[in-house]
């Protein structure tokens, strides 16, 4: 199988490669959203945060020539936008989901506004790690060209899963998210914990955005995100607020996104719009299958409105 004609193997490799390439933004946003929701808040504005992260990261890389600095700036921009969300939600009688939608509109608007000068220039991309050196096939080599952010995301998922269970920080976060009463009784400052949870989540979502603009697909324009930030919020629910399951779910999403183009490239061209919607059909089916009318979802933070 040198180069040339891989046929159906090409589809399999494209889906695996696609899963790795496409999944990283989903992974970062869903990990961020998990942190936020574990603290008892929903931030539906991570779509806006993601887009802002993509723009600011790209802009920074264009101006300084340093893509990793772009990643950092993207995270900070995301943290800042999420701070606005967190502060508004601290006020009484404010619906966190609605604020999220507002942030979604504001964040994308701001990113489009400030991003106009960066559509044309090319930014330096984040480097690859070649994990496919052992294979003679260029397709396999390409599929296993992995970005460091993917590995960081994977490690972060493991770390967060451990930290939420085993550290004091994790305990405080979970308590605040599960029951305001209990957290109050234990003397935790609920508002501060939630602000921190939201800001940390925003940082991760911003980094996820920079992956889009600085690695794959590696450009900045106004069609860059096709709702990855919104979908990641749905993804958290079927990952049951578990960081490691977020990782699996992101891979499934990435693979499902890559399936359509891979099939079309071997000549299976009918119904491409429906293949393209595969991730959405899949998520809805899984949600219907796994939900229950009587009890909240397993793993759901008790104070989160979206789990009820």
């Amino acid at each position: 199988m040198e180069g040339g004609d891989l046929g159906w193997w090409g589809v399999v490799i494209a889906v695996i490669g696609g899963a790795i390439r496409v999944s990283t933004p989903y992974l970062f946003v869903s990990l961020g959203e998990t942190l936020t929701e574990k603290s008892g808040r929903v931030n539906l504005g991570l779509e806006g945060v993601l887009v802002m992260g993509a723009m600011s990261g790209y802009g920074t890389a264009v101006i300084t020539g340093e893509p990793w600095l772009g990643v950092l700036v993207a995270g900070c921009a995301g943290a800042f936008l999420s701070l606005i969300h967190a502060l508004i939600c601290t006020l009484p009688r404010v619906n966190d989901i609605a604020v999220g939608i507002a942030l979604f509109i504001f964040g994308t608007g701001l990113a489009f506004f400030l991003g106009k000068p960066f559509i044309n220039p090319s930014a330096p991309r984040l480097p690859d790690l070649d994990l496919g050196w052992w294979s003679a096939s260029p397709q396999v080599q390409s599929a296993l060209q992995i970005n460091l952010l993917f590995l960081i995301g994977f490690t972060l998922a493991l770390f967060l899963a451990w930290a939420l269970k085993n550290t004091r920080w994790g305990l405080v976060l979970r308590t605040v998210g599960d029951s305001e009463e209990a957290a109050g009784a234990l003397g935790y400052n609920i508002a501060v914990v939630r602000i921190l949870g939201t800001v940390a989540g925003g940082f991760l979502a911003g980094v996820g955005g920079s992956y889009l603009s600085l690695y794959f697909p590696g450009t900045w324009n106004e069609g860059l995100s096709s709702g990855q930030g919104l979908m990641a919020v749905a993804l958290v629910i079927f990952a049951r607020w578990d960081p490691v399951r977020c990782f699996y779910a992101s891979l499934v999403f990435g693979g499902a996104t890559a399936l359509g183009p891979a099939l079309q490239s071997v000549g299976i061209t009918a119904n491409y719009y429906l293949y393209g919607a595969a991730p959405y059909f899949l998520t809805l089916a899984l949600l219907i299958y796994s939900s229950s009318p009587r009890k909240a979802l397993e793993g759901a933070p008790g104070e989160v409105s979206i789990s009820r």
């Binding site: 180069g3 040339g4 004609d5 891989l6 046929g7 090409g10 589809v11 490799i13 494209a14 490669g17 696609g18 390439r21 496409v22 397709q139 390409s142 599929a143 889009l212 794959f216 697909p217 590696g218 450009t219 324009n221 069609g223 860059l224 096709s226 996104t257 890559a258 359509g260 183009p261 891979a262 079309q264 490239s265 071997v266 393209g276």
Partner: peptide
């Protein structure tokens, strides 16, 4: 852009 990049990769994978 995501679909276009993915499609480009898939076509290259097909040779």
């Amino acid at each position: 852009p995501v679909k276009e990049a993915e499609t480009t990769n898939a076509l290259i994978d097909q040779g």
